[in-house]
Write a protein that binds this DNA or RNA. Structure first.
Lengths: 369, 369
DNA sequence: ACTATCATTGAATCAGTCC
DNA sequence: TGGACTGATTCAATGATAG
């Protein structure tokens, strides 16, 4: 086990803190292969030409901060490749990254990710339910932003809590387009003057879905462009550790105060639906041993096309095949593989039932001990 | 006015034809500054590793055609930059381009567009109402594709029919995410054997919106990867001229037959009455993500008999049951089914309120679009 | 003719464990 | 580290077939 090594690496990490400085320097100071997940909201490199006014002549408060100014695409690319490289080093081999952006920068970031060996898992569209309209009527309403979810490499065993996200979506698998409102109202942090404390504060709902879906309780989540600290706030609430990096003192202060107020949810509220694989393995032969099926019993394929006979050792014989429930199903169907538990059915009271219900019965008996 | 010059250039153009050959060579043979709009559906460079089977063991018919194979990102970039350069030359100064792709290629294409001086106007998300699921449960359902809409330069006076798109969108300005079904049913072209005639035929509804929104009647629309000819079919119907370029004879033949059947301004075929939309589904988990309920919160059954705790993934845990709001209600009541929305209540200001009021709140936010 | 059920299919970078 | 083996996994829409 790598437990000692992991604990060693973790103890060296500045957990649940906001580090000051340039994110590339700070990441380079952290140990390699030590972070589970990175969420990054880098500068978008907006190329604004002038002021924008609403139809009522009020001025739109645009993102024109110094940190969003780059002299050229080349300069922006150089910056992107540098921080993505530093991020790649500190990620665990099975780690992953999320990057959010708009059409101004996301194409360049995505290409850089691919060039550096990250393996894109999905691009996810954050569809804003309440976007800012296009006041001039010169383009489509820019009603979404794009997130890229990528593993450290194409062989990385990234975390994906499929069942939890399926539950979040009321029983059907989560899609790559997420409808979430932009951050305003009470959630939007204000400074002493009542002005927004950060120009691009992300909604906590977005981070909630990201972290529930692609991290585990206790994981270390790093955000190199911490800003107002949404990543830290949601990580703390969900029982994950965070590491924030932020250059500007005023944002560090805002984020610190914000996170201090957050309480972690109860442990049992953080548990999410587990995959079936986590349940104990039940060999088919045990059903025969326990007399739930008898040697000689006939099973039928769920589609009615084939039948097979149970043997005393828990193997099946069909017309032209013998072996495990999986092997015989695969051979008969001419398929590379087959889940025998759901493929084969037996008769109970004239009803066709998959043998998986017998396995469930065994498992629930095992739990009672 | 440049009328004479435009007429001269146009007379040299092979209008309403499908040209054979490599799209770069063919575009280079056309006059400069002569095309109003380009719609391009280039190869996506999918990097598939093996076969994929559905849970019922049927095999997914993947896009593994030779035209989609590139040896490396570098080779794909070289190809992209070459055809984009040729496209740039033949576009009129006020022309524009649309390119469609997936996360496999769209970031590279987008970066190439920017590098070559195109000016991105919007990225548009095609949200598929009926995407192929993720059969292994290893990622999010890949439920969208991305289109980039760009002008020839940042000073180009591109065509944008703001009002027409606003009408198409029931009176509110068109957003950057479009919900459109994938192409199947009668619209999907089949060959003599009943097999799909082209692996990646795009829906006409998509092109309809593109052409209505960003071109004028009589404009010249060029599609360098013509395939089954959706661009030509929609252009002809909408009274635009098209120029198709397609390398493979079998696709040229399919497209030619298809377009021959199209009648211009066949309005009643376009104007289908829209069914009144049902209320949008709101998964319970979304209330948790948005902080309307918090993991750990307790819910009470409306009859006061049971209580349950909310988890981070939008499932409930009760004394002896866990699952969706509906499942847990049904288990506790010993009922075959249960409407969790009206069964479960939360406390607000000491008042017991059904969670359905929270759902109503989310729906009214969604309607604000 | 109408309804219910079943089969098919779509641009997909789609497995984990044990020996 | 490679090979054998277990076994997890799907949504919406269309069209065909059965009742």
């Amino acid at each position: 086990m790598a437990t000692d090594k992991a604990a060693g690496a973790r103890s060296a990490l500045p957990l649940d803190q906001i580090l000051s400085g340039d994110c590339i320097d700070v990441m380079n100071s952290l140990p390699a292969n030590s972070v589970d997940l990175i969420f990054a909201d880098p500068p978008y490199n907006l190329q604004l030409k002038g002021e924008l006014h609403r139809p009522d002549n009020s001025k739109v408060d645009a993102v024109d901060d110094a940190w969003d100014q780059f002299s050229s695409f080349r300069a922006y690319d150089k910056f992107s490749r540098a921080w993505l490289k530093a991020a790649h080093r500190i990620l665990k081999p099975d780690g992953a990254i999320w990057v959010i952006g708009s059409y101004h920068n996301i194409f360049r970031v995505g290409a850089a990710l691919q060039d550096q060996g990250y393996w894109i898992l999905n691009d996810v569209v954050w569809r804003k339910s309440n976007p800012m309209p296009n006041f001039r009527g010169k383009r489509l309403t820019n009603a979404h932003e794009t997130m890229i979810w990528a593993a450290k490499s194409d062989s990385g065993k990234y975390t994906f809590n499929y069942e939890a996200l399926k539950e979040l979506n009321e029983g059907t698998q989560m899609r790559s387009d997420w409808v979430i409102p932009i951050c305003n109202g009470n959630e939007r942090l204000k400074d002493a003057n009542g002005q927004k404390a950060h120009p691009t504060q992300k909604p906590e709902a977005l981070l909630h879905r990201v972290l529930v879906g692609s991290s585990k309780p206790g994981d270390v989540i790093l955000d190199p462009f911490f800003g107002s600290g949404t990543t830290g706030a949601v990580a703390k609430r969900l029982g994950r550790h965070f590491i924030g990096i932020e250059r500007e003192a005023k944002y560090r202060k805002v984020a610190e105060a914000r996170i201090a107020k957050i309480r972690r949810h109860d442990r049992d509220a953080l548990e999410v639906t587990q995959p079936k694989r986590a349940e104990p393995r039940v060999p088919f032969g045990h059903l025969v041993e326990r007399g739930m099926l008898t040697p000689g019993d006939q099973l039928h394929s769920f589609n009615g096309r084939y039948k097979a006979k149970v043997r005393a050792d828990g193997t099946l014989v069909a017309h032209d095949a013998r072996g495990s429930i999986h092997q015989v199903g695969a051979i008969l169907e001419g398929a590379p593989s087959c889940n025998g538990w759901t493929y084969w059915c037996f008769n109970r009271d004239g009803q066709k039932m998959p043998i998986d219900v017998l396995r469930q019965q065994v498992r629930s008996e095992m739990r009672e001990n």
